[in-house]
């Protein structure tokens, strides 16, 4: 279970960053007072355009960033004060965090299993199970640097789940994957949900969110602007599909002219 209460994250901007963002402000509010809950047995989707604050929110949950204001608890543990315990409960997957390319998937699985203090026998059984499910067996001893993008992603997913975490956080889970690997990933997420895990994903792909997520929170400019099941969102926005609903919300927040 993830509980985010009034999360605000403000970045201080260096002069270089200011120039990059073409702004004179010395601060950027990446996330502004976001509150949400993700429960066991559901996939919660954070939907929003690039730069809306999805990744920052997920990184705060994963203890990699500290909230400027507000608090986050994961399975009852505070993300700042009990970071180690939170990290033991979660799996966090994002494109920017990768496995060491010099080692094989098998070695990395054992290494992270060791860091999580998993019993060797349990680890061996879990490895056999995951590697079979993700079709990793054939390349399990190959160096990760020699694997294709899809293979790397499969290996990364297997390794991130080495400690059978209660909470799974996925930042853009299918980004850069071919449709077959993407399908393997989304199917597996559904399976994990059915096994009672708490899952939170971020995405900007409407069709993916529509098919995968049980509840969706829309984020625009760091603020949560809508939340609900697909049906609830479609009804409240009188929309035909999620994309339609999203643009209606977006226009309301940003104004008509911002879209065209």
């Amino acid at each position: 279970m993830i509980v985010i209460k009034d999360l605000t994250k403000i970045y201080k901007l260096s002069n270089k960053k200011k120039a990059e963002l073409k702004t004179k402000d010395s601060e950027k509010v990446a996330v502004n007072g976001v509150s949400l809950e993700a429960h066991p047995g559901e996939i919660y989707g954070l939907l929003g355009p690039n730069g809306a604050g999805k990744t920052t929110t997920l990184r705060c949950v994963a203890t990699l960033l500290k909230p400027t204001k507000g608090e986050i608890t994961v399975c009852g543990f505070d993300s700042v004060k009990e970071g180690k315990k939170v990290r033991d409960k979660i799996s966090f997957l994002t494109n920017e965090i990768k496995l060491d390319p010099h080692f094989s998937a098998s070695y990395m699985f054992d290494f992270f299993g060791g860091l999580h203090g998993i019993d060797e026998e349990v680890l061996a059984n879990r490895k056999a199970d995951f590697f079979k499910r993700f079709d990793i067996l054939d390349f399990q001893d190959k160096k990760i640097e020699d694997l294709s993008t899809g293979m790397k992603q499969k290996a990364a997913i297997a390794v991130s789940l080495v400690h059978d975490p209660e909470v799974i956080i996925f930042d853009e889970p299918t980004n850069g994957l071919d449709i077959i690997t993407a399908r393997v990933v989304t199917d597996f997420l559904r399976e994990l949900r059915d096994a009672g895990k708490t899952i939170i994903v971020s995405t900007h792909i409407m069709s993916e969110a529509q098919k995968l997520c049980d509840r969706i929170g829309m984020i625009i400019d760091g603020k949560k602007v809508a939340e609900g099941t697909l049906e609830e969102l479609l009804e409240s926005e009188s929309a035909e599909d999620l994309e339609d609903a999203f643009f209606k919300v977006y226009k309301r927040i940003k104004g008509e002219d911002k879209i065209s």
Binding site: E96, I97, K98, L99, D100, P101, F112
Partner: peptide
């Protein structure tokens, strides 16, 4: 390469 961050996610 982003591999150091994977270690920051470990419970140590």
């Amino acid at each position: 390469r982003g591999t150091l961050a994977s270690m920051l996610l470990a419970p140590i």
